[in-house]
Design a protein around this nucleic acid. Structure first.
Length: 420
RNA sequence: GCCGAGAUGGCCCAGCCCGGUAAGGCGCGAGCCUGGAAAGCUCGUGGCGGCAACGCCUCGGGAGUUCGAAUCUCCCUCUCGGCGCCA
């Protein structure tokens, strides 16, 4: 959520920003209209309240006709206040709904562009293996090794779900532990949070309202299935005020994530786009100064995971048109998958400035006697598990159908070095 | 799920029965005092609108009664305790 003062002060630059981000219908104009009326009525209402307060403190001292007269007068004033208030409540609802639908302002270093084609490739790293055979796609490998069972996943939970078996399940567990351990070494504190979150939490991080159709909703309890650990982890500190000395705070969390992927058809033959997947996430709460430098560090922490796995990858700087709603700047890390000869987005690292902090009311006190200010939040996946597994299966496959286990994972798999 | 008790400024806590300017303490800050400090004293310490004087709001959330609600009525949320159920 943006600071309403910024919207009021310079609506034209917000309009330009929305054009750059490809948001056509954002209710900015509706906000401005409602806000102008709101401010006018607030002042009017305050003046009437002042009158009522003054007379009300006078009334107990009065007697007789003077008193009845005043009470009658105040009855009219109260009625007017009531009608102003009910209009103010309407306007407030409109204002809030509008402002919740306006995305964050991109950082100056973000390239302006329409869609994914305008993203900037920051760099390509690692070496691609030369295969002496046609590299297979991950589902061919996995089915042959019987480590992923697509049909039974569908049987249990419907399309878009899958089952890991044997070495597949163990590889998943190894990856989670490897990632958590590395993030711990990088200075992140591990947390394990609820998978079900409140509506307030999804508002706090900005998934609600604009991604609400992408999340699973538990109607009976008005709860939401975690779409990314960013939600429960960032909201851990909802409504809190930190001392300056407590910042920065870095968390890492492993948590299942759920996406309805409404309108997209899930890839039933693979695990590239599924409804439930594991992910290890990094979340940071930082001082507003230098938060974009922290983003570089965060991205590097995610790259460490990929480098450790010795997978070829590239880093993209997302353009204004492709960036997420709440982000001010965002890098994607994509893994190269030789079987499909394509790139897989496995991590997204973003700086949200104070956009989430304002929604979730996360503040810090710059100095003990000074007013509290909003902190900045960041997060990044390190990494999404299914796509990492796809990349491992396709990059580490051998001609005989076996898959070599990346060296860093072997300690987590009882020193086993191949699957199959 | 049932019964009971609670929710008041950064933190603690009074006020509620019996409606009339939200008291006090802690912490933190500024000032006075002091050779310096402690103690003491004074002031400040949430949000919104004008952005200066000022005004309004704020007692978990919402609705109602009233000239006037922290206080009375109704609904909801959360916390704690007891009972029940249970991996």
């Amino acid at each position: 959520m943006l600071d309403v003062n910024i919207i009021r002060q310079d609506p034209e630059s917000i309009r330009q920003m929305l054009r750059n981000r490809n948001y056509s219908d954002t209710k900015l104009e509706a906000f401005l209209n409602a806000d102008a009326e709101w401010r006018m009525l607030t002042e009017k209402g305050n003046a009437l309240r002042k009158q009522r307060n003054d007379v009300s403190s006078l009334i107990p001292k009065l007697t007789g006709t003077e008193k009845t007269k005043r009470i009658d007068e105040m009855r009219l004033v109260s009625d007017e206040i009531k009608s102003i208030d009910s209009r103010l409540t309407e306007l407030d609802t409109i204002r809030e709904e509008c402002v919740l639908n306006i995305p964050n302002i991109p950082h100056g270093s973000v390239p302006i562009g329409k869609d994914a084609d305008d993203n900037v490739i920051v760099g390509e790293y690692g070496t691609r293996k030369k295969f002496k055979f046609r590299p297979k796609e991950h589902f061919e490998i996995a089915e042959a090794l019987d480590i992923i069972d697509f049909n039974r996943g569908v049987k249990v939970a419907g399309s878009g779900f899958y089952v890991l078996k044997g070495d597949g399940a163990r590889l998943e567990r190894a990856l989670i532990n490897y990632m958590l351990d590395m993030h711990q070494d990088q200075g992140y504190k591990e947390v394990f949070t609820p998978v079900v979150v409140t509506k307030n939490a999804v508002i706090g991080t900005g998934q609600y309202p604009n991604l609400k159709d992408d999340m699973y909703w538990l109607e009976r309890d008005d709860m939401w299935l975690n779409p990314t650990a960013e939600v429960p982890v960032t909201n851990l500190h909802q409504d809190e005020i930190f001392e300056k000395s407590e910042l920065p705070i870095s968390y890492t969390a492993y948590l299942p994530s759920f996406r309805r992927e409404a309108g997209k058809h899930s890839d039933t033959r693979g695990i590239v786009r599924v409804h439930e997947f594991n992910k290890v996430e990094m979340v940071k709460f930082v001082h507003p100064d230098g938060s974009f430098d922290v983003l570089e560090k965060l991205r590097n922490d995610a790259e460490d995971i990929v480098r450790g796995l010795e997978l070829p990858y590239r880093v993209l700087l997302l353009c204004t048109g492709d960036m997420g709603f709440a982000a001010a700047k965002c890098y994607d890390i994509e893994l190269y998958a030789p079987g499909r000869d394509g790139w897989l987005e496995a991590s997204s690292c973003s700086c949200f400035t104070d956009f989430q902090a304002r929604r979730a009311k996360i503040k810090f006190r710059p100095e003990p006697h000074l007013k509290s200010e909003f902190i900045h939040t960041l997060n990044g996946s390190g990494l999404a598990l299914p796509r990492t597994m796809v990349a491992i299966l396709e990059n580490y496959q051998n001609e005989d159908g076996t898959v070599t286990i990346p060296e860093v994972l072997r300690p987590y798999m009882r020193n086993q070095n191949t699957m199959g």
